[in-house]
Amino acid sequence: MKKIKPHGCIEKPNTDGKIILPIGHYAIVNCRNKPNNIYTKISIYGLGSCIALILFDSKNKVSGMSHILLPKCQLNKKIEYPHKYADLSANLLLQELLNRGAIKKNIKAVIVGGSKIFELDENGIGINNIKAIKNELKKLEIKIIGENTGGSEGRVVIFDTKDFSVYVRLTRESNLQKIKYS
C-alpha cells in the first residue's frame, strides 16, 4: 500500500509521555520499543460532540487514537485532515495500525464522546457521529469492546498505552472512571 502522510499525525509525546490530541488529529503508539519505560498517555480534554476512536492490538502492542469531528466528508473536496471525518478516520487508523505490525483479528475498538452540549434542534452531530463510527467499524469488522457515548456533558478521555485501558471523566464528576471491556 502506498504510504500516505496526511496532516494531523502526532508522533512524539512531550517529555512526560503525554499526547494531547487536537480535533482532526490522530496518534499512533507502538509500545514494543518504548524509550525509558515511559508509556505514552493520549488524552483529550473537553470532548463534546466529537468522538475519540481508540483502536488497539494488545498482543502486538500497537495502538492509536483519533479525534473525530464530523460523521461524513464531502467527496468533492480535497481533504487535508482526514481524521476530521468518521468515515475516513476509522479506515485510515486501521491501516496505520496494520502498517506498524498490528494484526487485523486482534484489533479492538473503544469509542467515547458524541454528547449534546447545546439543546439545538439541528444539533444531531453527536448522535450522527456515534452512528457513523459504529457503522464504519461494523463495515471493517472491528469489535467495539467498550464505549462511553451520548449524554449532554463534555468528557475528559485518557488512553493509557501501557495496559490499553481508557479512563473517562464527565464534566460534573470529579474522578476518572475506567471503562469496562466486554
Binding site: 480534554y45 473537553g46 463534546g48 460532540s49 466529537c50 439545538l120 452531530i125 464534566t171
Partner: peptide, 16 residues
C-alpha cells in the same frame, strides 16, 4: 441556548 461545560466541549459543537 445555554451550556455549562469545559470550554473545549462547548467549542466543539460550534466548530462542527
Amino acid at each position: 441556548k445555554i451550556a455549562l461545560d469545559s470550554l473545549n466541549a462547548i467549542l466543539e459543537t460550534l466548530i462542527a
